[in-house]
Design a protein around this nucleic acid. Structure first.
Lengths: 335, 335
DNA sequence: CTGTTAGCGCCTTCAA
DNA sequence: TTGAAGGCGCTAACAG
């Protein structure tokens, strides 16, 4: 490697002081135009790149935001990330991303890394196995604000941007009802997730309002792994009184559940109807995707979360705030 | 925010010197056991987290590796990232991820950010629009090694881990041939990508060896956007002498192309056969996915790239090295 | 318009 | 076994 070039290098080469170089590089008008030009010229020709560690140490800010998501392969989260990136970029902030792979320990490691790196803020979508929040408390103690996106913590006061499932899911239940469907099961996500709670509560309330019966046997939870989802779906289909429709926690769960139905010789959305959450682009490619999905607008969630963080960083927000993104039912045209 | 706690805070609280605290925190055995315990206890109770900027400045190493991929929504790249993370983790390195969204300028920004942050190394999968490499040269000048993964640069000497397309694609051509298919088109990716070159060359050579004719009209390139892919596919189908099979650049291109065929009333893999690259898990959910895919083992590519980087960092590798991951044809059982 | 100085938080020789 | 001192690269008063 070429020996590292610092402002000192440039300074001595030009016979000026390091501070002059520093100022020139920042375009400080107090420095003579001629000097500024000479400095930036030399800097470029030496391929000088400032060492952010030094700047961070000095200025106590990184213009960097850490993003922790459960995984990167779900389109839901990559859309969320794009929303985040787009706002942050507008505000001169860099997003750096880490995935917890739905594992609390990885999440902790990622968060700690970002804390050590003293990011200006954190955007977090919780892992499915997270049941402690100490690692986040710690971050806030250091004055680093956190905004939770979509996968928000239970009973831990915080900034958050959530999807409201009620709107879309109610429409979904009504939609099924109008199709003459009465027996509706819920293949839910892990109880640790707030979003699973919401689905469950809305489902129960909705069923009640439609005067439909349900039973514990109709309510199952998967840990979101393909195997577990398939096992739970097998159980549902094995019931002596199987449901006519299944509401799946999200599109991935739906796809796995649908596969189970198909393996059993059932025709999806005919013998058994599927409704799901997320409405991801990939489902467009599915021949037998869910008949309808509750669109949650992940891009918008990310965008709003980024905006909120930006506001916190620039103007400060007194107390915690929650923002909501309302879901909407999307019926596939093939229905 | 609570005022920042540093080793000084701890030191004065304990009536020892900062250097003692520093050493104690590192578990330096030269410090008395009792002191070490008191220090780490207080550190924990104060939620002390070291400021990596200071450490970086001092030690000139970050134990962090930057990863830049074209996008996060393709399963291909998220699998690659998992491979990368798994090796790095084993070696005490943190991966931080950035996506270029197939845009060279974003790629440059990400790379520059990582350079400023003085990551220990960089793992890069090029954006589809990258046609200059200055930003990478610059990184290397700073002694930061780069390993390119899969999407590797053309005519820019570098460390790289590549997928070898020949093996799988040849089998693919033979597979089609044995099915009696003679007219085979190639719906390729952007010419800037080395992998597009390889597909083209192998296709041409394979067709020649099988004594099959092809023509410029059978060879199209898409910029990988859905719109462009569909337009190119329309052109292919509009030919007076349309092909019996289409080899698509990757699974996503295949899915878009298949949609065009279906829109035209063609039955995929019957009226027109599709073969593709990647063999992504999501294609399992497709009713009408490609009949066969060239599996490229992205996880393995990421893993090997991580290993190579680790080797460069720890022992140093003289000159550049290229490692290959051989592709294999996977035929779907429904075929 | 530019230089001097001090210090951000941490580590590490050197000294005790 | 511990402390004092200097410095990593950069910035920002404070002087001129």
């Amino acid at each position: 490697m070429a020996e590292t070039v610092t402002i000192k290098t440039i300074a001595s080469l030009l016979g000026v002081s390091p501070s002059t170089v520093s100022r020139a590089l920042q375009g400080n008008p107090r420095i003579g135009l001629r000097t500024r030009e000479r400095v930036s010229e030399l800097a470029r020709s030496l391929n000088y790149v400032s060492n952010s560690a030094a700047q961070v140490l000095k200025k106590n800010t990184t213009f960097t935001v850490g993003v922790v998501v459960p995984n990167l392969h779900e389109e839901y989260f990559s859309l969320m990330i794009e929303g985040i990136e787009d706002v942050l970029e507008q505000n001169g902030l860099q997003a750096i991303i880490s995935q917890s792979r739905d594992n609390m320990n990885r999440e902790k490691k990622a968060v700690e890394h970002f804390l050590r790196a003293r990011v200006d803020g954190l955007l977090v979508s919780l892992s499915a196995t997270t049941n402690e929040y100490d690692h986040f408390q710690n971050v806030e103690r250091y004055g680093i604000p956190i905004v939770f996106c979509d996968r928000t913590p239970k009973g831990f006061p915080s900034f958050r941007v959530r999807s409201v499932v009620e709107t879309g899911l109610k429409s979904g239940l009504e939609f099924l009802y109008e199709k003459g469907i009465r027996k509706i099961a819920l293949l839910n996500g892990p109880p640790d997730l707030l979003s699973a709670d919401e689905r469950l509560n809305t489902y129960l309330r909705g069923m009640y309002e439609l005067k439909l019966e349900t039973s514990p046997a109709y309510i199952r939870t998967t840990n979101l792994s393909k195997e577990d989802t398939m096992a739970r779906m097998e159980e549902i289909l094995a019931l002596e009184n199987p449901p006519e429709a299944v509401i799946a926690f999200n599109d991935y769960v739906a796809l796995d559940a649908i596969q189970v139905a198909k393996n059993r010789g059932l025709i999806p959305n005919k013998d058994i109807t599927f409704l799901s959450f997320a409405n991801l682009p990939i489902t467009d490619y599915m021949e037998n995707g869910p008949i309808a999905s509750v669109e949650q607008f992940p891009y918008r969630i990310g965008f709003k979360a980024g905006q909120l963080l930006e506001e916190i960083l620039s103007s400060g927000v007194p107390g915690y705030r929650e923002e909501l993104v309302y879901s909407v039912l999307k019926i596939r045209d093939k229905a």
